[in-house]
Design a protein around this nucleic acid. Structure first.
Lengths: 132, 132, 132, 132
DNA sequence: GTGGTCTAGACCACG
DNA sequence: GTGGTCTAGACCACC
């Protein structure tokens, strides 16, 4: 299933980040399988009404991470899944992100139970299509 | 107990953010109590080998969030706890942080169950003395 | 309608405060509507003959108050209105400002009646187009 | 009636400012009449548990404004009331303070009516002892 | 000594 | 071009 992108220009994260994130998420959750095609840089740029440079930059980063592969003349495709970060690096990144969340939550007065509820709610919201 | 800061200059998040995050965490978890002094701008800048302005910026933001109070000529202190943001605003901020974490975690291949375990582990690590 | 800034370098309040105050007033009175662009940091700095950092600082604070949104690479815009502070926090801030005014007014010999008149006059001057 | 000072060390405004403001307010509202004595610098410093320099500075400014007079060897007294600012200067200062208050109030979502109520309430709170 | 403000100028990320 | 971060160093207000 080809990846569907939709960006919100008013979001806080820059456009190229949104593209990267959505691609990574689709690949990580299995919505996009190895070999699936991605829209071309210029097609996606036109569809999202953004600068082609922005898309190119996002694709370049995804490519450098080994998540997608560009075959000149044919198009861009989801690569064979493989680890790009070492185990330690993964753990470090995840721990950072988790700590940032809990720090924000506790700092703003959330109780552990409320944090738990939010967490479960968001988790189920993000993974319903994992194995449809 | 005075807050201990340590920054990693090579990190992705800017120095002033690291200072903010560490202070917020210490305050949120109760490691720093209202009235406790923070290191002076100049002292911390020297200790971390960064520009005093960088520390001042971090302190200014913490102050605007109502977490610390600066008394010119005296120093900077942890403030009395008070709710500054509306429920909606808090929800907005917490949701952002949570989404960032889950996005990162799922991208890096964590299963929902693994995420859950990490979450619980971190939560209990951060709130041991919550209600002693 | 774009916000017009003008500062008095000899004033008691710092430049960045003057910028903040004028922007807040323009937004509060509806002279600047959500989506309206603000002058770029560099452009305004040049116009007012001050350092760009000074403008950036003012914009950063307005942004933290949720009044404006900055989109790197695009510019700065008036944000959608939203309540950011709790009732208590708003009351705290408003009370401070009110006390400062009355303190000043009474100190300078204004009678309560004169203060009332001035207040009403300023109020109607600031809210002509409130409900057009 | 001699002026009673009481400062709150945790306040936002510096101590010397609080002393100045309270003296000005007492004089402006008539609570302290021309000729009334003020506590000596060192007595007040001891009473308020602050640095004598702080009090001396406040008295110096009040003195330079013509509100109090120091008679070496005798003490410090409220001066004969007289205008120290020109009419234009007074109007300008008052207008600034009023605009600051209304800007804050409107910006935080207060309706004109709510602002009016707050204003009246604060006004009556500050002037009950005007003519007791 | 403390923090607050401002300037000058650098480098990076974003579109 | 835009805004964001950081540095270096100045001056002021406060205690």
């Amino acid at each position: 299933m080809p990846i569907r992108f939709n960006i919100s220009p008013g979001s806080q994260s820059p456009i190229y980040r949104q593209v990267i994130d959505q691609a990574r998420l689709a690949i990580a959750t299995g919505k996009a399988a190895p070999g699936d095609p991605l829209p071309s840089v210029r097609a996606l740029a036109e569809e999202l009404v953004v600068n082609p440079n922005t898309i190119a930059k996002a694709y370049a980063q995804l490519s450098s991470e080994g998540l997608i592969e560009s075959h000149p003349g044919k198009g861009v495709f989801v690569a064979q899944k493989r680890q790009v970060y070492t185990k330690a690096e993964r753990a470090r990144r995840i721990d950072n992100a988790l700590e940032a969340f809990l720090q924000e939550a506790l700092c703003l007065g959330l109780t552990p139970d409320e944090a738990r509820k939010l967490f479960e709610s968001k988790l189920s919201q993000l993974t319903p299509a994992d194995k449809p």
